[in-house]
Design a protein around this nucleic acid. Sequence first.
DNA 1: ACCTGAACACCGTTCAAGT
DNA 2: ACCTGAACACCGTTCAAGT
Lengths: 190, 190
Amino acid sequence: MVRQPSINAQHRTPLSTERIIETALQIVDGQGLSRLTMRRLGDALEVEAMAIYHHLPRGKEQLLDGLVTHVASAPAQAEGAAPGSWKDVLRGWAAGYRGRLLAHAGVLPLVVTRRNPAALTATVASLREVLRRGGVAEDTAAVAAHTLLGYVIGHAALEVRDTGEDGADRAVDWDARFTAGLELVIGGVG
Amino acid sequence: MVRQPSINAQHRTPLSTERIIETALQIVDGQGLSRLTMRRLGDALEVEAMAIYHHLPRGKEQLLDGLVTHVASAPAQAEGAAPGSWKDVLRGWAAGYRGRLLAHAGVLPLVVTRRNPAALTATVASLREVLRRGGVAEDTAAVAAHTLLGYVIGHAALEVRDTGEDGADRAVDWDARFTAGLELVIGGVG
DNA sequence: ACCTGAACACCGTTCAAGT
DNA sequence: ACCTGAACACCGTTCAAGT
């Protein structure tokens, strides 16, 4: 009546890296990054905390890296776009990427400083590819890709910092501000 | 011979909020954010950890907020600039601000997501003021200020993420890339 | 007013043991 | 192969006590 883990052990879906990461993301989104502990994650997975180490030998470090990869690796679609529409492709990607970051605001500090380059290289490469196909020179494309990604991440960070405070003063229309700044950056490219 | 804290207690400089924050920043810069603990901070200050709570009643939360304010609050100098040189003022501010963030890379994740708007409002306001004095319209100035700050923070984050990895591939010239992206942003303003 | 010391409820992680 | 349970060395913070 109290708890019968050994009986249900056979029936429940087995642990997997993917299920661990997704459950961890749920905890971060719902309760904040500081409440993500191995013990709590174990509880949510209906498993002892130590079982997680069997799938993530590097422990919490690896867990956090997995979270970053899960939310920050979102390349733009370079192929199949109408020629000359590269600005629209970038606009669409930026809106979607910003949405991702805001939806998982708790992992933003990890995205920013986890030494996990692999999580972003695919994204940066895709942006450069879109620009290159749009006829932008190689050097400019490399700069613009980093500028755009830096802007989107930095702006999302500013937004997250501001939300939920003294709305009395005068609320910033972040949607409008993001779009305007985005046009400013894209306009600077060419 | 072992330790005589009670004897030296009178001679050492007394605890102060400023000294606490500065010592904490030294720990973060030297050993990383994860090694900043109240106990270690107490050791560095030659005091029991609990003494810190007397100056920072909100504990570690308040300590981290103090760190953010200490490094991220760095307004641009709006006054005394030659008229028409507002772009140079912004260039100078951006270079300095980036330098600050990179010098204290350990606090960058805190700058990004600590709900501590006060730490950045003075900085944003100063940028808007520089733009307004430069003849930029109010609305554009508000957008450009956030865009610029977002870019600088986001770009610094990308830089920090990348350093110290497989330099084998092909190292990015971050200085050049930052400057190029900055010109792109400033050029977009007007 | 300012600091200490012991205590409490947590952490991440190791390691031997179970199945 | 996969998971458990106890243990270790830490955390942040409270609270009564010292000076």
